[in-house]
């Protein structure tokens, strides 16, 4: 589904990604791990199409279609979803209004009419129940005054509503206590199926106890230096990243 071929990227003239290749198939869960500053979040941004990040070399394709020249919203229309590490606040715009706008903009891009209100309501109710989201939460201004857990739950709620092909979870576990982590992970697991794929970006193996990856990749200094299975995550937890560095030398 997702093919990343020899991608180099920089931000403000500084090279961050230095030749990343990755292949993700439908139905798979991939974990991307690595120390701070290795380029994990840059990889997420470059897939999502954040403007400040410049792809200097390489290609990214979704279902065979090159998306490297597309705007962020066009990539979203192709089914790319990014759960933000730091979701932004939009005062005065309710969670419901925001997701309604997002859904209808995605439909518009596909040449469909706005989703009928009754259908929208039904869907919102269904997904809110799935993620144990309180009805009152839906009328609050987007991310304004949300706790860390509420913000991340809201991200997963949007994912549930938009039903993306490819979901990238950028440090979704940061700022969550164990109960919130379980709820969020549970939500992701319920949304996972044979037709979509998930990339989990994380520092720690903790989240991977709940969202179990098929593959684990380690990024260091802008390159994938090691790939393996879930077992690799345990090794990293136990030994840190230094042994990989040593191995590389």
């Amino acid at each position: 589904m997702l093919q990343i071929k020899d991608v180099y990227a920089s931000v403000e003239e500084k090279d961050i990604l230095k030749g990343i290749s990755l292949s993700v198939n439908a139905g798979e869960v991939h974990a991307i791990m690595g120390p701070n500053g290795a380029g994990k979040s840059t990889l997420a941004s470059i897939i999502a199409g954040k403007e400040e990040f410049e792809l200097t070399k390489g290609h990214i394709t979704i279902d065979g279609e090159d998306i490297t020249e597309l705007d962020a919203e066009e990539r979203a229309h192709k089914g790319v979803f990014l759960s933000f590490q730091y979701p932004v606040e939009i005062p005065g715009v309710s969670v419901t209004n925001f997701i309604k706008t997002a859904i209808n903009e995605n439909r518009k891009a596909k040449g469909l009419k706005d989703m009928p209100a009754s259908e929208m309501l039904k869907k919102i109710k269904e997904k809110a129940d799935l993620l144990e989201i309180d009805r009152k939460f839906l009328s609050r201004s987007l991310n304004v005054g949300f706790s860390g857990g509420e913000k991340k739950r809201n991200e997963i709620f949007q994912m549930a509503m938009l039903e993306p092909k490819l979901a990238i979870l950028d440090e979704t576990d940061s700022g969550l206590d164990i109960d919130a982590l379980k709820v969020v992970a549970n939500g992701v697991n319920k949304l996972k199926n044979k037709d979509n794929a998930v990339i989990v970006i994380t520092h720690y193996q903790r989240l991977l106890d709940y969202i179990v990856p098929d593959f684990v990749h380690v990024i260091m200094d802008g390159k994938i230096v090691k790939s393996g299975t879930k077992q690799l995550a345990y090794e990293l937890e136990e030994k840190g990243y230094d042994w990989i560095k040593e191995e590389l030398v």
Partner: peptide, 22 residues
């Protein structure tokens, strides 16, 4: 804010409208 909206499939014009209306 704009990128956040873009990522959800909302284009820049519409994103501004959303923020302003809020």
């Amino acid at each position: 804010q704009i990128f956040y909206c873009n990522q959800r499939g909302i284009d820049t014009e519409k994103a501004i409208a959303l923020v302003v209306n809020g």
